[in-house]
Amino acid sequence: MGDNISSDNIRIEAVGITKSYGPPLFAPVSFTLRGGDGLGLEGCNGSGKTTLLDIISGLCRPDAGQMRTHGTIGYVMQQDGLSGLLSCRDNLLFEAALCRLPSSEARSRIRDLAEQCAISSFLDKRLSRCSAGMRQRVNLAAALLCRPGILLLDEAFSPLDSGSRAIVRNIIASCMDGGAAAVIVSHDRSDLDALCSSAISLPDSSQRDIARRSLP
C-alpha cells in the first residue's frame, strides 16, 4: 500500500467522538479498526452515519474526541460529486489528478479498475447516461484509484442489482484482504454480515446508547 501505517496495523482510532447540530447527533463513539477489519454502521435516517463517515474522512470536525487515521482514504459518497457532463473515463482521470497520480500510472490504474469494477464497456459513455448502478460502480472505482488504506462506503450498495452487488462486495473484500479497513453504511444487514466483523448501531434522537455488536 505504501501508506504510513502504525506498527500494530491500526487504520482508524476513534475515541469519544461526538457531533451536534443543535442537540447531540450521537453519544460518544469509540472504535479501533485494523487493516482488514470491516465495521458496519447502522441506524435510521438522520442518526449521523454520514456525519461519522465525514468525521473519519476529515471533511467534518468532531465537537469532541479524537480521530486518528493512518492511510489514504477512499470515500464512496452518497452524493458522488462526479460530473454527469463528463465521460466515466474523464471523471476517473480528474479523480486521479486529485490523487496526484502521474498520468501514465493513472491510465493503467483506470484500465485495471475498469476491468475489476466491470465498467470497461461504458468507460467512454457520458456519466449522465449511465444507470444508477453503473454510476455507483464508477463511484467505487474513483474511490479505489488512490489505493486506499481506509475505505468508507456510504450506502454504496443501495442502487445495485444483485449481480453488481456481488461484484462490489468482491472488490471490497479483496481490498480488505489487501490490508484496507472498511467502514460500511448500509440499511441491508446482509451486506454488513458479508463484509464486517462488527457493527455499530447509531440510535435515533429518542435513544441515547450506542449499540455495538459482533457479526458472524
Partner: peptide, 17 residues
C-alpha cells in the same frame, strides 16, 4: 457553482483542495 451543486467540492476537499 456547478461543482458545489454536484457535491464535487466535497470530493475536492477530501483530496486536500
Amino acid at each position: 457553482a456547478g461543482q458545489a451543486e454536484s457535491g464535487r467540492l466535497r470530493r475536492l476537499s477530501l483530496r486536500g483542495v
